[in-house]
């Protein structure tokens, strides 16, 4: 990119500037398998136009029996959408819509380790695409809730049946949502925060 033409450089709109008093940020991750609505959710609740940060991953060809050594390295660009919500004059919340595949997560320093918690989006037509990410969060001790994104042609199951199929303990909230609507996405985030708060109160959050 050309950094010299300062008139044409992209940047935040004036109304998107954070106050100088902004001291710190917190983050929440929105995860789930391919096409479950992560980007849509980030966009519906963000106060700024959603942005994308990219990382390039150089990967040796795996599972390929070859004689070319480093010649087989391939570069994969991994993109992550994110949005922002101002909480107070001092505090800012960032939401990251994160690819479900764990092999990408290490690209972003502390993305999951530092997140307050996670929203796992599921699509009832293909519940299993979000299975792996839930297990990864459990392994890493990242608290999460499950949000069922209602697609019109998706089957509707009683929440108890979903809890059984997803093997979730009784305390983990499962909520239905339409992530295209801001109010619905906001409700999902409020549910996550309420859950984190209950963990904090009970001293269970580690």
């Amino acid at each position: 990119m050309d950094f010299n033409g300062s008139d044409t450089l992209p940047g935040p709109r004036t109304e998107d500037h954070l106050p100088h008093t902004a001291q710190a940020a917190v983050k929440i991750v929105i995860v789930g398998g391919f096409g479950v609505g992560k980007t849509t959710m980030v966009g519906s609740v963000s106060e700024i136009r959603p942005l994308t940060t990219e990382e390039t991953m150089t990967q040796a060809g795996v599972g390929v029996d070859d004689d070319y050594g480093s010649e087989t390295k391939t570069a994969t660009t991994v993109a992550m959408d994110f949005g922002r919500i101002g909480i107070t004059d001092q505090l800012v919340l960032y939401l990251f819509g994160t690819p479900g595949q764990e092999r990408f997560w290490f690209l972003w320093n502390g993305l999951f380790e530092g997140a307050l918690g996670a929203v796992v989006l599921v699509d009832t037509r293909r519940l299993e695409v979000s299975f792996d990410v839930m297990g990864r969060l459990e392994e890493r001790g990242v608290p999460f809730i499950v949000a069922v994104n209602s697609f019109p042609d998706g089957p509707r199951y009683p929440l108890d049946d979903l809890r059984t199929a997803l093997d979730l303990t009784a305390d983990i909230p499962i909520v239905e949502c339409d992530v295209r609507r801001r109010a619905s996405s906001k409700e999902v985030l409020m549910t996550l925060m309420g859950f984190l708060h209950s963990l904090a109160v009970s001293g269970a959050l580690t």
């Binding site: 890493r140 089957p155 199951y157 979903l162």
Partner: peptide
């Protein structure tokens, strides 16, 4: 409901 079922995992760290 039918279909695949998940098995919960334990914290590793």
């Amino acid at each position: 409901m039918t279909g695949p079922r998940r098995r919960r995992r334990q914290p590793q760290h």
